[in-house]
Design a protein around this nucleic acid. Structure first.
Length: 872
RNA sequence: GGGGUAUUAGCUCAGUUGGCUAGAGCGCUACGCUGGCAGCGUAGAAGUCAUCGGUUCGAAUCCGAUAUACUCCA
């Protein structure tokens, strides 16, 4: 059975059981601060389990793309070594939200595996939760055990501990016991030698878990205790790649048709063969796996970067490059060339791969080149370290510096060192790494308390599209403590006019006022698992009373100007540059807006000005806002709205229209484009290969910008005695200035030559040395020039110059011919240090040239007098 | 979010306890030599040493802040 059919069969099976089939949610999470990526099939449905929303159907099924880079088995550094763990994988899942529970969950899983997929019953094992004797004191899941008994002999029902058979979403939240289904695909001979049941959960590559059925029945509170959930849920997840391995009768996920085409392409490009050399095989698996993770992520709009989710993607890609570099001898970018085969093979199930093939290739290629440069640089640094090192062991500190500051991977360092007969202090390195981790952890430490419920009102209504203030009640609140912000409170209302950060638009600020006139400021508004949360520094005194919630109108209005301008900018870009332009991110603040988009080259000044004109034409066109809060996604796209990759949309969406600009958008906008007043692009730059960024301002910010510019211009004009053409005048001044500088240089040279002559005449020979100590009227540079000018003519000079540039400033300069200083052991530095005391100062320099400064010009005479003492 | 490193000529970079009159290679300009492929020689132009502030007689160098880039950790 082909992988595509395996996926389709799964979905059809659950569709027939009354499930709604939904497409995979984007892999990058936007609505959950505790998670960077979707790491399991249930993550996109978290808000339903938390009771913050109602699903469209109480039975849902899908195939979800997931990314895991850490966890029980999925340490990034281990992927590729075995044949059944991945960074990116598909999770087939079926869910019951308060509907069916263990009985159907188990029966259907069994039916699908054994009757539809026709997996031999004898190679299946299941596990159930055995209970725990710790603080939770949970009983064994006999309910699940009794159901399984009907399908499978009891000797293949194993009891598992809390680690394996009790599933938790995080430190808090819904959780419950689970039942895993394992498969043993070893040969009959091996089975005869070692029993399958003894290999369950023992990391055997052919005895693996394929499906986990989670029975959510508890809620874990912040204090660690469990309470029963009012509604019980089913959450299951089956590893798609492993299922393919079983159904295609192969021994490794990498031998399925999911990976095979990619692997053979890698072999072709690198001129290697899969299945011959263990190390090369690992490298090939690493690259095949990581390619998928990186390509899917870029398609979902998450580009490699140096923070957050983007950094995870960069790390994954760099790991692939490293393995290619070390084991497949690839010194040029090549991973980008694999995107073509990936998009051909998976483009049908995941159209975003096909649509964005070009961008994915560009971004990967650019990352590859830049990392290869990093490696080159690191190799040079490492050479330097080796040649300077006195022993055969390189310290952990140095290796860590190479890794931490310059990004040179530790495994490459170790390899190169061992090739050259050096070792490295592994322990020291690990210590440095641990220190770094502790620093980061300490800085981001925070604790979150349980919600205190004041009013039971689970649905918080957003009224901010129509109102900027409202009478509200606080329904619940909690305290959050972090190192950075200290103690903060998060408040939830029964309804709110506050717009939460989202769609690039910043959250509203404002205040809460109670009937006694007490005011609490709302510093930010965010959305978390579908709940709008208001951040305050203090807790209101009278929590149970009514409050007036008021949004900061000025900030909101400025933000709306920028948001609407963003839409017009998007339209302008597609109009001026072409329809290949796609939004890759935007930030809408009150003070400015930022818009990232795909485009292959730097914008010309004409293009920028065309874009500005386009937007400003629509502003002066006074186009009214047409808002449709409840239009089907299908109808909206038919009308010309563009859905973004990596965004999660419901069946009905909100469409925002200004003339021909139509966007699916949850943000707030001005009522008429005329409100924006004016649009001005402030900068255009690159953020990655194939991605450009525009920063722009509107309304008040533009007024400030022009008035600031105008002020500067007026000042310039005034300085130039109000000339009519300041540019011309400045150019003229510049020319004159250059001319004058040349003249001054010539004059100074002449002056120095004259002085040189004078000094020549005044030199006295003392003890075989041409000596002079004299006060001159030059600045520090002039004296320097003079000294070296005279120095060119004589071989045995000892000069001391003094000058008093100001009433309370004095300076001494000592010049001694190099050879003389060397032969006789004279030290100009010592001379000025000692004589410097006479002018109440100090100084130093080299043995042949030194300067000193001080505050007492009246000491100069004495210093000049004492100079010849050094010659004796 | 927290660290580290870097920012010097158009480009790539050197500049070792604060004082070598801020340098090299490539590129550029001029002149000369030269029968091609990165030919050679001589001369020259080009720097607010990222920005702002501090310490010091003196800062490219030390300290602080800001900006940008790279990098590691979360």
């Amino acid at each position: 059975m082909k992988s595509q059919d395996i996926r389709a069969t799964f979905l059809k099976f659950f569709k027939d059981k009354g499930h709604l089939i939904v497409p995979s949610a984007p892999m990058v999470t936007k609505n959950d601060p505790t998670l960077l990526f979707v790491n399991s099939g249930m993550a996109p449905f978290k808000e339903y389990f938390l009771g913050n929303g109602t699903p469209k159907n109480n039975r849902i099924s899908d195939s979800q793309k997931c990314l895991r880079v850490s966890g029980k088995h999925n340490d990034l550094e281990e992927v590729g070594y075995d044949t059944y763990h991945h960074t990116l994988f598909e999770m087939l899942g079926n869910w019951s939200f308060g509907d069916y529970f263990k009985k159907e969950g188990i029966a259907w899983a069994w039916e699908l595996l054994t009757e539809v997929y026709k997996i031999d019953k004898d190679i299946l094992y299941v596990t159930v939760f055995e209970g725990s004797e710790d603080a939770d004191n949970l009983k064994m899941d006999t309910e699940a055990y009794d159901i399984w008994k009907q399908f499978i002999p009891e000797d293949r029902i194993l009891k598992g501990n809390k680690k394996d058979n009790f599933w938790e979403m995080g430190e808090q939240g819904p959780c419950g016991p689970c039942s895993e289904i394992h498969v043993d695909i070893r040969s009959a001979e091996e089975k005869a030698k070692v029993s399958g049941s003894s290999l369950i959960n023992e990391d055997h590559p052919q005895v693996v878990e394929i499906w986990n059925l989670v029975f959510m029945q508890y809620n874990r509170k912040a204090n660690g205790t469990l309470e029963d959930l009012p509604n019980k849920h089913i959450d299951t997840g089956m590893g798609f790649e492993r299922l393919c391995m079983v159904l295609q009768n192969v021994q490794s996920n990498y031998d399925t048709d999911v990976f095979k085409p990619i692997i053979s392409e890698i072999a072709t490009i690198t001129g290697t063969k899969y299945g011959i050399d263990t190390k090369q095989d690992i490298a090939i698996r690493v690259i095949a796996d990581h390619l998928r993770a990186v390509a899917f992520s870029i398609a979902d709009g998450q580009l490699p970067s140096n923070t957050g989710a983007g950094y995870v993607i960069r790390r994954i890609l760099r790991r692939a490059i490293r393995y290619g570099f070390t084991f497949l001898d690839t010194k040029e970018p090549f991973i980008y060339r694999l995107v073509a085969i990936l998009s051909t093979k998976m483009g049908a199930a995941f159209p975003e791969l096909k649509a964005q093939k070009q961008l994915i290739e560009n971004v990967i290629k650019e990352e590859e080149s830049s990392f290869l440069r990093t490696l080159d640089k690191g190799l040079i640094l490492l050479d330097g370290i080796i040649s300077e090192n006195k022993t055969k062991e390189i310290s952990g500190e140095k290796v860590f510096e190479l890794y931490d500051t310059f990004g040179f991977p530790i495994d490459l360092t170790a390899l190169i060192l061992s090739e050259k007969g050096f070792t490295l202090d592994e322990k020291g390195f690990q210590e440095e790494l641990q220190k770094q981790k502790n620093r980061s952890r300490a800085a981001s430490e925070s604790s979150t308390e349980d919600w205190s419920i004041l009013v039971n009102d689970p649905v918080e209504e957003f009224i901010g599209y129509d109102a900027l203030d409202a009478d509200v009640k606080i329904t619940r609140y909690r305290k959050v403590t972090s190192k950075k912000d200290g103690e903060m409170y998060q408040l939830v209302f029964n309804l709110t006019p506050f717009y939460p950060e989202g769609g690039g638009q910043v959250g509203d600020k404002g205040y809460l006022e109670d009937i006694h006139g007490d005011v609490i400021y709302i510093l930010d508004t965010k959305k978390e698992n579908n709940v709008i949360i208001h951040f305050t520094k203090t807790l209101p005194k009278h929590l149970n009373e009514n409050f007036k919630a008021v949004v900061d109108k000025k900030q909101r209005f400025r933000t709306e100007c920028n948001h609407t301008a963003t839409h017009l900018l998007h339209q302008a870009l597609r109009e001026v540059l072409g329809t290949h332009v796609a939004q890759k991110g935007s930030a809408v603040h009150s003070k400015y807006l930022r818009f990232d988009f795909s485009h292959f080259s730097k914008l010309t000044l004409e293009e920028i000005s065309d874009i500005e004109h386009f937007v400003n034409a629509r502003i002066s066109g006074k186009i009214p806002l047409e808002e449709n809060r409840n239009i089907t996604l299908k109808k909206a796209t038919e009308e010309g709205a563009i859905a973004l990759f990596g965004e999660k949309y419901g069946d009905t969406v909100r469409a925002i229209r200004f003339g021909n600009s139509i966007e699916l958008c949850g943000g707030t906008h001005v009522k008429n484009t005329a409100d924006i007043w004016h649009f001005k692009i402030k900068s255009e730059s690159a953020v990655a290969s194939g991605i450009r960024r525009i920063e722009a301002i509107t309304n008040d910010a533009v007024k400030d910008f022009y008035s600031e510019n105008n002020k500067t211009l007026l000042e310039i004009k005034e300085t130039l005695n109000n000339v009519k053409e300041p540019v011309k005048a400045i150019k003229k001044i510049q020319e004159e200035n250059a001319d004058l500088q040349k003249q001054i240089a010539a004059l100074l040279k002449e002056k120095a030559q004259n002085l040189t002559g004078e000094i020549d005449n005044q030199l006295q020979e003392i003890n075989g040395v041409q000596f002079l100590a004299i006060k001159v009227d030059l600045d520090a540079n002039g004296i320097k020039d003079l000294a070296f000018e005279v120095g060119k003519k004589h071989q045995n000079l000892f000069l001391l110059f003094a000058t008093a540039p100001a009433k309370d400033k004095a300076m001494l300069t000592c010049y001694i011919s190099k050879e003389l200083a060397k032969e006789r052991g004279y030290d100009a530095g010592k001379v000025v240090r000692e004589l410097g005391k006479l002018i109440h100062g100090g100084g130093g320099g080299q043995n042949f040239f030194a300067t000193a400064g001080g505050k007492n010009p009246s000491g100069i005479a004495k210093a000049l007098e004492k100079a010849q003492d050094y010659l004796v």
